[in-house]
Design a protein around this nucleic acid. Structure first.
Lengths: 270, 270
DNA sequence: TGATCTTACGTTTAGCGTAACAATA
DNA sequence: TATTGTTACGCTAAACGTAAGATCA
């Protein structure tokens, strides 16, 4: 039976040509290597070396054996990595969400409920989420409507209501309610990484332009200093004075008031 | 580092569910197995078992690890087999011939010239032979004409002349020479395993019928007792009285007098 | 002479099995 | 009580390294 550690020495010899090199590299005495190379030969059951008086080299079969030895060692390394990855995946609850807000409460909830598990989350498009939950690539998906289909479990999680933040001196600031149609055409500031909301806004306000901001600080400065519209929701938290000179007006469209649903394949994760 | 022998025990445990079964199957004491399963766990770096008080079973990761262990063991077995096969192929001179006669002298010649090598021979169709020599599936090919092409070496080996054996009282027995055309229409006895000769005869004597014999004894009896034509060549040897009441008449067609050529890819096998 | 591989030899370790123990069905 | 897995313990074998020998550049 082959010994993988000896194969490692064997491959090392193939790469360094002398046992003494292997000896210093692997911190094994030369006599031990001489013996172990014999073990490898015995395990393969064929002669692998040309024994010169003070020179050892691989014969043609030996060179072929090195190829297989390398493959075996790679397979071993891979097997260990795959098993470890699998083990980790068992201890990890993976969440994919269509928007960041529900994660803010769900992730802490999961952490305290399953303290032994790692929680991993990521933002995805809605079709991706449904697909990944179905294929068990992720454990829990969060989508902004009920799931149609009986192959997945579905439970209501939370509701998020979109409002538009209108500068006080803006023409629309007097309204108590607004619709996407009302604000369509006005240019808006928009944070990135807000999931499906960005697609929704672009779709519902086709003639508006959106200035997407990555940096929180930049965003706040622009909100304070510009007359561009921006958005908030019942989930969002803003620095104290960020919206001080703006009026927060609910958007009444159905699409702006979503109920997040958790979808999952196994009933074990409620 | 994984130990393949321990993986074998691990797989055996997966298949037999208890260490005691593994113990009797593999002739290893139970305490040793307990320890070695721990080694496997350590090597994979993750927990693989559920330790009951007097029950040991694989956990989910363990089941996954078994899959990889099985694969590794199969790879190891395959690696050894492949290296041994390669070693054997290096020590084997493979010959493919279009006819048996040249092998009768070539194989002994090769054996004495390369006593350390095994000689392996087989009969093939001419296109197969050329293809196999080109692809180094065989070392030496024997074909009944010169090879057209400069990608293979070619050397003349021997000449074989076909004669027809006519019963003494047969109408054709008076001829000193004959052609395929002359004997076309007469039915013939034919040995099997004579390579391209059978195709040649059938092609050159389209209206004859051929009674193909597998057994040497049957063949001789039929030669003695029937008036069917049969064939011989300068290479063939027959029992003393087998052709006693037949006249051996050379066939003059070019195709009946062939010069065998050895073809080979490397100049190392002359 | 320095580098290399092999052989010989003595030590140590770690691998194994026996025996004893604990727990279950 | 019979079966199973674990722990403890002692022994043996084999694995290792040091030292010495042989060969070559």
């Amino acid at each position: 039976m082959l010994d993988l550690y000896e194969l490692k020495q064997f491959v090392c010899f193939a790469e360094n040509k002398t046992l003494s090199k292997v000896s210093e590299i692997m911190h094994i005495s030369q006599p031990t290597l001489t013996r172990n190379m014999k073990h490898v030969e015995d395990a393969f059951g064929v002669s692998l070396f040309i024994h010169g008086k003070n020179k050892l080299e691989l014969n043609e079969t030996g060179l072929k054996a090195v190829e297989y030895a390398r493959a075996l060692l790679a397979d071993e390394k891979n097997a260990i990595a795959m098993v470890q990855a699998y083990d980790r995946s068992l201890r990890t609850i993976t969440v994919e969400s269509c928007a960041p807000a529900p994660l803010w409460t769900l992730l802490p909830d999961l952490s305290s409920k399953y303290p032994e598990n790692t929680i991993s989350s990521k933002m995805c498009s809605i079709p991706e989420i449904i697909n990944d939950v179905k294929n068990e690539i992720c454990d829990i998906g969060i989508i902004p409507y009920a799931y149609c289909g009986d192959d997945l479990y579905d439970s209501i999680y939370a509701t998020e209501n979109l409002s538009v933040c209108i500068p006080s001196n803006h023409a629309l600031a007097s309204h108590e309610h607004l619709t996407f149609k009302d604000i369509n055409g006005f240019n808006c500031l928009l944070k990135d990484e807000i999931g499906f909301w960005s697609e929704l806004c672009k779709q519902k306000m086709p003639t508006s332009k959106f200035l997407v901001q990555t940096n929180d600080f930049d965003m706040e400065e622009l909100i304070k200093s510009s007359t561009l519209l921006c958005f908030t929701t019942n989930f969002a938290s803003h620095p104290d004075n960020a919206l001080s000179n703006r009026k927060i007006i609910p958007i009444t469209d159905d699409e702006a008031n979503v109920t997040y649903h958790l979808i999952y394949k196994n009933s074990t994760k409620p």
